[in-house]
Write a protein that binds this DNA or RNA. Structure first.
Lengths: 218, 218
DNA sequence: TGCTAATGTAAGCAACGTCCACATTAGCAA
DNA sequence: TTGCTAATGTGGACGTTGCTTACATTAGCA
């Protein structure tokens, strides 16, 4: 929410980025319901109409905010996955399970840290996914596929895995975003969800225990 | 969305109910984002300001819509539970499990049938729960408590049950509301989620199988 | 050095949520 | 029944919003 500094030049040089930044900040602080295009333009020091050179409308700007957030999430997920993949100290099915736990951590933490972005992303769920969101989907699909490929779960459980893992983590993330999940218990919640669901999908107890040691609770 | 019939009397006699009805209909059809107080008042045939005799503001009206919906949901959940409780043909822990499955059915079906209400309820999640929502919370808490009391799950798993059962069903309901869960597979999804989570929480395979026969898939 | 396309401005439109002074009337006390 | 008061609805206004359109400025390239 940068204070409205008057520009000296007629052109802004990167209004699109500035709008994206400003919108993200304002959503973080006041929620997407309270977000106003005009206010944001005012804060940047630009006329209201200028935004329409870069975004079709308000919804389009917010969609861009959401997709940028998804892109960040995708980066975090990929980093977490790579950190596990690089460490060959465990059996493949243990690593596949550990990736689920790591994804859950990243996802739920993010929801707790940026609740308003999480809500905005949830409310825009019915539209076509942008590139950032698509990356996230691909990553989670890969995650599930690896559970099958490594033998952590039976192939026939793949469909069930799709209906349980991500939805359960999404539900927990919603709790975190709504303040119904204490920060101190956030990781405990994730552990509980991932253990429960993976166990329910047929992952061996031994693999679950090893997964736990692979990703310490803090 | 009743056609704007001019009233003959100055007073409406039950504007509050009429507004609630009209708002619910309009939310169902156009989503809560597109909902306009003025439009609704116009459709009822009343001036815009009249609404403020019954609701503090637009948000308050929508909150009332949400809580009325929660109240309906609570009725459906209670009915489903009672139907199972009345039938003493199975062991208590089987019935406790069956109630989870029945709750899931009711909840996810409702999300698929009234997606816009579901989204509205989700976006209003950070406020104090009204009486309807409180009833739903009490019902789900009871459901979890019965799992422990009947011995279906170990008492130490109660906290895990709180973090998994309802969040997982909520996540699946979101898929249903967003059209990502085909109507034809809705019940299959619920079955998968409930089986997986309950199994993960330690419910015996035998109880799961009996639960299934207690609540047929269609 | 100029031309063109990209980018910003200013003014204005219709609609919105909300408030206020006022009109109407329901329901109750005398 | 009559009259009073509180509840309920009206009409108009205010400020803000998203968005459009005609025009101004300027970046970048032939």
């Amino acid at each position: 929410m940068s204070t409205s500094a008057r520009r000296s030049t007629y052109h802004h040089r990167d209004l699109r980025t500035a709008l994206l930044r400003e919108a993200t900040e304002r959503v973080d602080q006041g929620g997407s319901e309270a977000f106003s295009l005009r206010e944001a333009a005012r804060a940047i020091g630009v006329s209201p109409g200028a935004a329409y050179r870069h975004f079709a409308d308000k919804a389009d700007l917010l969609a861009a905010v959401v997709d940028a957030d998804f892109a960040e999430l995708a980066d975090d997920l990929a980093a977490a996955r790579d950190a596990i993949t690089r460490d060959p100290a465990h059996a493949p099915q243990v690593r596949a399970a550990a990736i689920v736990l790591a994804f859950g951590r990243v996802y739920v933490r993010r929801a707790g840290t940026h609740p308003e972005r999480f809500h905005l992303a949830s409310s825009t769920g019915r539209t076509t996914p942008g590139p950032g969101e698509q990356r996230v989907r691909d990553l989670t699909e890969d995650m599930r596929a690896q559970l099958v490929e490594t033998g952590a779960i039976h192939p026939r459980m793949f469909q069930d895995a799709s209906w349980t893992i991500v939805p359960a983590l999404y539900g927990l993330a919603s709790l975190a975003a709504d303040g119904q999940l204490d920060d101190a218990h956030r990781d405990d919640g994730v552990r509980a969800v991932v253990h429960t669901v993976l166990r329910g999908l047929g992952v061996a107890e031994e693999a679950l225990a090893q997964m736990e040691s692979l990703i310490p609770n803090t």
